[in-house]
Design a protein around this nucleic acid. Structure first.
Length: 673
RNA sequence: GCGCCCGUAGCUCAGCUGGAUAGAGCGUCGGCCUUCGAAGCCGCAGGCCGCAGGUUCGAGUCCUGCCGGGCGCACCA
């Protein structure tokens, strides 16, 4: 890892700057550390002299030379030079750097402040599709990178079991199909239930479209779910439970896991909202609108800038240029005039709970026992006594697509208005663009659209669960795994069927997860099946392949030289290191090692920007650099013993770092492929 | 109308709190398997970084305006 080196260099330089120019505290320049374009120039570099040039009235080059001359010595640094253009470049002590990392790459220290990451949150009424997968892949990677940096994370999956979507499937079963709970149970036991509901849901939508009067069934069903105690509610609970189990299975295939399932029904039954409502009324965050279109509703004023600190009542009055606008457009309904709380209200209560600001808790039951331990779910009554503590986090990340930005903004605003600006600050909307389908893929799924329609003119087709249009997650994984299996079998005919399937599964996961990760989150993914099925070029399997080849080298070294990795590493301190220091004429091995060391820096950047394409690109470029090195430099067959050993050591480190990087993306490395 | 996001090679996209010659994959064309595994490697071609101003020693990156596209702005979730 490289960050500790950054810290030491930075501290040392700041100290020197203080001595040289009396620049301390607020006067101290920001010390940006970067990597010179090639290793001849140095290993770390900083443009700090440019920053100081004006203040000191000296040329950058002169300043860089003065700092270099005054640098003195620092453990792990061989020399510091002023580049002719004004950069200040630092050279690292290479063999020591690599050996330190090979011997003890320690995990980041565990931090005290807990983070809650909520992701997935698929309506429990149909199978998961490619759009949901983007959410889960991003969410799960977020969990992994946070843990990598030592942050304790609680992963929650929110289950909207009382919403319109579940209601629609209930209507499908009861009204369209005329099924009882027992019959539905029989269907669930004998079919792919999430697939069955996928089709049924699409049929219900069509049926509603045929006659708007039929929407009354939805309203009645929703009401029945909320009141509870009826067989309609029981059917709803059954469907949600079964579908959630399907989703969990799908996500488990992708190495995605959770600690807690939070059920919306429990938020209702336990009256979380009532509690939050009191807090918000008391703080004036919501008020009862007495006139106009929204008369009888409890509303929250919408601020222009929710990031601004605590609302003062005056700021509510529209400014002069805003006078012409409808003032009611600046109010968001939280409780409807019929007394029913909106989604926003429920979410506010949930968010309060996540941050430990509600003063109420769920009860908890074990939803499922896994090898890794129990998966917990919320419940309203009869919960277990011995459950881990949930909620009350210092930081909250809500992984939800960009279309929910407005609501997430309201959530923060509610926190500020209720007197918790720090809670708003610690709430992050992890927003990302949606996944659409390419026209080719939509066509492949049997979706026909009118060539003269607006939709046909767009470069993509929107995924729609409502229409039953989308690539189902399990179908995609099946196809990927099947393709991978064919390849694996062709390349490794000696493999057992079980081993082949295991490998194919790992490759399939790598392909999907990498694909969903490589685009920046602000970019819509136009999903094309053919493109996603490619295992070549910038793909998850490419990165896996690099690690597999690296591993094979060591298997062979072990077989041939009877030298295990530990013994190899231990032997190095007495072996001439010209191959690494550049004395042999090439910096290639060192460049690879240095790049591999950057994982912690990359992760830091990823967390700061919540931009995971950075992680994907890092994995890919490191794999690429390794492949190029591997192609050019002999390892096994290298005759010079010192060269062979140092190359092997470098490859061990690169392999380990690549393996860690893949793990952060939920990707495993097969033993062969 | 207001708000947010996107615009970089033929296509799909990276490009860090501004820094050294703007990168990758795919596609095209041409090489490399008797060699640690070709899911690989090497090379050629391909760029007014949407447009116009501004800030800066330095702008693809920051600011303003404009153009083009997407999304959001319900007593839905």
């Amino acid at each position: 890892m490289i960050l500790p080196v950054h810290d030491r260099v930075r501290t040392h330089l700041l100290q020197r700057l203080g001595e040289l120019y009396s620049l301390t505290g607020a006067d101290a320049p920001s010390l940006v550390l970067e990597y010179p374009p090639n290793r001849d120039l140095g290993d770390l570099g900083t443009p700090v002299a440019f920053d100081l040039a004006r203040r000191l009235r000296k040329a950058p080059k002169v300043i860089a030379q003065e700092i270099a001359a005054a640098f003195g010595t620092l453990d792990g640094i061989t020399r510091v030079v002023a580049a002719p253009n004004g950069y200040l470049n630092v050279f690292l002590e290479r063999p020591g750097f690599l050996l330190d990392r090979l011997n003890a790459e320690k995990p980041a220290p565990r931090q005290a402040a807990k983070a809650i990451v909520e992701h997935t949150a698929i309506n429990p009424n149909k199978a998961a599709h490619i759009g949901h997968l983007r959410n889960s892949a991003l969410g799960d990677t977020l969990v992994r990178v946070l843990r990598f940096r030592g942050v304790p994370v609680e992963v929650q999956n929110y289950i909207d079991d009382t919403g319109v979507q579940v209601a629609d499937v209930i209507v499908g079963f009861r009204v369209l199909e005329g099924k009882s709970l027992a019959e539905i149970r029989a269907i669930a036991d004998s079919t792919r239930f999430d697939y069955f509901c996928w089709d049924l849901y699409a049929r219900v939508t069509e049926w509603y479209d045929g006659d708007k009067e039929r929407l009354k069934h939805r309203a009645d069903t929703l009401h029945a779910i909320e009141s509870g105690g009826t067989d309609v509610a029981e059917i709803g609970a059954f469907i949600a439970d079964r579908i959630v189990r399907c989703h969990l299975k799908t996500m488990a295939r992708l190495n995605v896991d959770y600690e807690l399932l939070t059920w919306e029904g429990d938020i209702l039954r336990l009256k979380f909202w009532a509690q939050a409502f009191e807090v918000m009324k008391a703080s004036g965050a919501v008020y009862l609108q007495t006139e106009g279109r929204l008369a009888g509703c409890w509303v929250m004023p919408i601020q222009e800038d929710p990031e601004a600190p605590a609302a003062n009542p005056e700021s509510r009055t529209p400014t002069a240029e805003g006078d012409t606008e409808d003032p009611e457009a600046r109010e968001k309904v939280i409780v409807r005039s019929n007394g029913v709380v909106t989604y926003v209200g429920k979410d506010i209560a949930y968010q309060f709970w996540k941050l430990g600001l509600l003063g109420k808790d769920f009860q908890y039951r074990v939803f499922e026992n896994r090898t890794s331990g129990p998966l917990w779910a919320t419940c309203s009554t009869g919960g277990e006594h011995n459950h881990p503590p949930f909620g009350g986090a210092s930081y909250v990340y809500n992984v939800i697509d960009v279309r929910q930005s407005y609501l997430q903004k309201l959530l923060k605003q509610a926190l500020v208005a209720a007197g918790h600006p720090e809670g708003a600050e610690r709430s992050h909307h992890f927003s990302y663009e949606t996944v659409a389908l390419s026209h080719a893929t939509a066509r492949e799924l049997g979706y026909v659209l009118d060539p003269n329609s607006e939709e046909a003119k767009r470069p993509f087709v929107e995924v729609s669960g409502r229409k039953g249009l989308g690539v189902k997650a399990d179908d995609l994984l099946d196809t990927l795994t099947r393709n991978a299996g064919r390849e694996v079998a062709g390349r490794n005919p000696e493999l057992s069927e079980a081993e082949r399937d295991r490998t194919a599964r790992m490759i399939g996961i790598a392909a999907v997860r990498y694909f969903l990760m490589k685009y920046s989150r602000g970019k819509m993914i136009v999903f094309d099946l053919e493109e996603a099925l490619s295992f070549e070029g910038e793909s998850g399997p490419y990165v896996q392949y690099a690690v597999v080849r690296a591993n094979r080298i060591f298997r062979k070294i072990q077989e041939r030289d009877h030298l295990d990795e530990q013994a190899l590493v231990s032997s190095l301190k007495d072996v001439p290191a010209g191959e690494l220091t550049g004395d042999n004429g090439s910096h290639e091995l060192w460049a690879l090692v240095l790049e591999a060391a950057r994982l912690d820096e990359v992760v830091e950047h990823v967390i700061r920007s919540l931009e995971f394409s950075v992680l994907a690109k890092y994995a890919f470029s490191l794999a690429q650099a390794f492949n190029a090195f591997y192609h050019r430099a002999q390892i096994l067959k290298e005759e010079r013993d010192d060269v062979r050993r140092w190359r092997a050591a470098g490859v061990i480190y690169v392999r380990d770092q690549l393996t860690r990087t893949l793990d952060l993306m939920g990707i495993e490395v097969p033993s062969m492929m």
